[in-house]
Amino acid sequence: MVVLPFSEPARKTMRYASQEALRLKHEYIGTEHILLGLIREESGVTPDMLNKVGRDLGKVQAEVENWVLAGAEEVTKCRLPRTQRADKVLNYADKEAQSSGCDFVEAEHILLGLLREPHGVAHCVLVGLGLSVDNVRDEVATILRNRR
């Protein structure tokens, strides 16, 4: 259960995730949509981190889209439910934020949550790109230090 509030970048990430699910004609928000939302959220550290480790954002998006098929019909739901795996990701993100002493769940905590949920599409894509919880955690810390 998520305890901490979401920062504005984290909220935007989830709004983008919903938009990505609708674009792909899916009636749910899964880990793949959350990863696509993180890529779109430019004020978060995910785009910087992926670029810094040599991962082109367009390639990441293409890789996600290789894993999932677009739906056949437009989705008419106003509010899309999250999958159980997406909920686990957000719970992991909350734990990451708490363990780092943050008052909010940030977009980078969501990225770490995606890596901690081993059965999600996003995890498979990120690991396939050579990322792990440890190297992402280190890289995020470096980026955040350099932003200060």
Results as ranks from 00 to 15, higher is better:
93 A>D: 12
32 E>W: 01
104 F>E: 14
1 M>V: 10
44 G>M: 02
133 V>L: 13
133 V>S: 08
12 K>S: 07
17 A>F: 05
67 W>I: 09
148 R>P: 00
45 V>D: 04
13 T>C: 14
127 V>K: 15
73 E>L: 15
120 G>A: 12
62 A>Y: 06
68 V>F: 09
140 V>M: 05
137 R>G: 07
93 A>R: 08
131 L>E: 06
5 P>E: 07
84 Q>M: 11
19 Q>P: 00
54 G>I: 03
63 E>C: 04
8 E>D: 11
144 L>T: 00
131 L>K: 05
102 C>I: 00
73 E>G: 11
102 C>Q: 11
97 A>N: 07
72 A>Y: 13
54 G>V: 02
128 G>K: 02
29 I>V: 14
114 L>Q: 04
117 E>Q: 11
94 D>G: 10
71 G>I: 11
103 D>I: 10
48 D>H: 10
55 R>S: 06
148 R>K: 08
115 L>D: 11
55 R>C: 09
91 N>Q: 15
25 K>F: 11
106 E>N: 09
59 K>R: 14
71 G>H: 10
133 V>C: 08
124 C>Q: 13
66 N>K: 15
139 E>A: 06
52 K>Q: 12
79 R>F: 14
83 T>R: 04
2 V>A: 06
118 P>T: 14
112 L>K: 06
87 D>E: 14
6 F>P: 09
58 G>K: 04
106 E>K: 09
37 G>C: 03
34 I>D: 02
62 A>L: 12
102 C>P: 00
27 E>K: 08
118 P>E: 15
15 R>M: 04
31 T>R: 01
85 R>H: 10
50 L>S: 03
139 E>F: 01
110 I>S: 02
68 V>W: 08
63 E>S: 11
60 V>T: 12
117 E>C: 07
87 D>F: 01
31 T>F: 01
16 Y>M: 08
128 G>D: 04
19 Q>G: 09
3 V>G: 03
77 K>F: 15
35 L>T: 07
143 I>F: 00
123 H>F: 13
129 L>G: 06
124 C>V: 10
137 R>K: 15
85 R>E: 13
98 Q>N: 07
27 E>Y: 07
124 C>P: 00
148 R>F: 01
24 L>R: 13
23 R>Y: 12
25 K>T: 11
51 N>D: 07
2 V>K: 06
128 G>N: 03
110 I>G: 03
132 S>V: 04
113 G>V: 02
145 R>C: 00
110 I>V: 12
6 F>V: 09
131 L>H: 05
34 I>E: 03
44 G>S: 12
39 I>W: 00
121 V>D: 03
99 S>I: 10
86 A>K: 01
73 E>K: 15
126 L>E: 08
64 V>R: 02
73 E>Y: 12
45 V>Q: 05
142 T>D: 08
143 I>Y: 00
75 V>C: 10
19 Q>A: 13
10 A>F: 03
22 L>H: 13
128 G>L: 03
59 K>G: 09
42 E>K: 14
145 R>T: 05
29 I>D: 01
47 P>M: 06
28 Y>E: 09
91 N>L: 10
115 L>W: 10
92 Y>M: 12
114 L>E: 04
98 Q>E: 12
24 L>D: 12
37 G>I: 02
64 V>G: 02
116 R>A: 13
37 G>D: 04
77 K>C: 10
39 I>P: 00
132 S>Q: 09
90 L>M: 13
123 H>P: 11
38 L>G: 07
